[in-house]
Simulated scan of single mutants.
Amino acid sequence: MNKVVAFVINVDWYFNLHWLERAEYFKSLGYSIHIITNFHDQAIRDSLVEKGYVCHHLAVKRKSVNFFNEFISINQIRKLLIAIDPDLIHSITIKPNIYTGLLNKLFFKIPIVYSVTGLGAVFSSSAYKFAILKRLITALYKLISTKQSHFVFENGEDCSLFKKLGILKHNNGSLIKGAGIDLERFKPSAPPCNGSILFAARLLEDKGLRCLVEAQRLLKEKGSNFSLNVAGIIDNDVSAAIPLSQIEVWASSGDINWLGNVKDMPNLISQNDVICLPTTYGEGVPRILIEAASCQRAIVTTDVAGCREIVSHDYNGYLVAPNDAVSLAHHLQDLLEDQGKLINFGENGRKKVEGEFSQEIVFEKTRNVYQTLLGV
């Protein structure tokens, strides 16, 4: 199929981590893929170009609220889309969705997919500034929701909320759970039973690492013997970023084992008993939790949208209240002291991933969305 698809996404590493496999699938079907993003890492760009993708740099800052800078970004997207002349646009996350959606409604009027990969603090927090942002974003999403658009959600709760808010005016939304996991790469294995907990995520305050450090201190006071391994990306283009200096303080004091940005996730997961993500805001479906379940690992995470999509409480893991270090410590201790439960939860998680989160399921559902919009 000789169709041109333009992906518009906020940053290069996010595309590389979460969207490359889907792009590979559509390239294999004959689609021509253009990637519009902020390229920070030349190695990522070179790798994508070598694989046959057409890459376009976009100077967008995720935490910027400077009107002049945002106008420049929007105009840059407009010029790039004119030059690319795509048959379909696939935009991902809030800023690309809103900016590209407005441009498409005003100028291009071609099929467009909006991927809503979690609603974040804007929709989760009760803070006044987020309440204002929520109203603004809701109004803009309503404006760009047209008959030629389709919203894709990673969890059912976000989809239901958009229906309730009146954004999905044209029955133009569907649920596709997560990024899709390669079940052969993330293979099941027995836990090592070495008392190890893994936190692997972007190093943001909202991801709950500080609460996890507090929980491990509570466990050590009780004499519980375990290790807390931390791997992640330092993401300084987000206001809630945890500075590297804080990570180094925790590492030097023995609170965590700091591993840096680890590429081989299947191997890293296999070395740990429990995967923990005590996030405080609504996620899409956290990739690390899907990977953990696929590798047959028990999970402790928070009872928020997205996490509930992959973890069923007391089946393949535990769901605890956000920012509750005492409850977090209790449930971690429960798993670390019960080898049978570690194994049982892990096996249940693998079954869940095989039935709901495999690459094949995600690829086929995304293909159906594309074909419906393109009328093929």
Rank of each mutant, 00 (worst) to 15 (best):
P96L: 10
K109V: 02
E70T: 07
C55Y: 08
F68L: 13
L80Y: 03
N69R: 13
Y99E: 06
Y114D: 01
Y99G: 08
L81V: 02
L81N: 00
V113K: 05
I72G: 02
T117Q: 05
S91M: 00
K51R: 14
F108P: 08
P96S: 04
I98Y: 01
F108R: 06
K51N: 14
E70Q: 14
S115W: 09
G52P: 01
L102G: 01
L88F: 10
R62N: 11
G52K: 06
L80R: 08
T93L: 12
I94Q: 10
V60W: 03
A59P: 02
K95Y: 11
I92K: 15
I92D: 13
I82K: 11
I82P: 03
F71G: 09
Y114G: 04
P111D: 09
T100S: 07
L102N: 02
V54P: 09
I94A: 11
K95M: 09
I89L: 08
S64D: 12
I72V: 07
F71I: 15
K109A: 06
K109R: 13
I98G: 01
K95V: 09
K61A: 07
K105N: 11
N75Q: 05
L102F: 14
H56P: 13
T100D: 12
F107D: 03
I84P: 02
L106P: 02
V54C: 08
A83S: 15
C55A: 09
I84H: 06
V60C: 07
I72T: 05
V116G: 15
H57M: 12
L106C: 05
F107P: 00
R62H: 14
P111E: 00
I92R: 13
S64L: 02
Y114S: 13
N66G: 08
S64Q: 04
I112Q: 01
V60G: 07
R78H: 14
V116T: 10
L106E: 04
Y114H: 15
L58I: 11
I77C: 06
S91W: 00
L102C: 03
K109S: 11
A83L: 11
D87M: 06
H57V: 14
S64A: 03
I110N: 02
T93H: 10
T100H: 04
F107I: 04
K95R: 12
K51D: 09
G101F: 13
S91I: 00
A59C: 05
K63H: 13
L102V: 14
Y114W: 12
I110H: 00
Y99I: 10
I110E: 01
V54L: 10
R62D: 07
L81C: 13
L88V: 12
Y99K: 01
S64W: 07
S73D: 03
L103E: 03
L106H: 01
V54A: 14
K105A: 11
V60R: 09
Y99S: 03
F107W: 09
V65L: 10
S64V: 08
V113L: 10
K79L: 06
F67W: 09
Y114Q: 07
P86Q: 12
F71Q: 11
D87G: 01
I94M: 11
H56G: 11
N104G: 03
H90Y: 06
I82W: 05
K105I: 12
V60S: 06
I77F: 06
I74G: 02
N69K: 15
Y53M: 06
K109Y: 07
L103R: 00
R62G: 05
I89E: 04
P111M: 04
G52H: 08
Y53T: 08
I94G: 07
V54H: 15
Y114P: 15
I72F: 04
H57K: 07
Y99P: 04
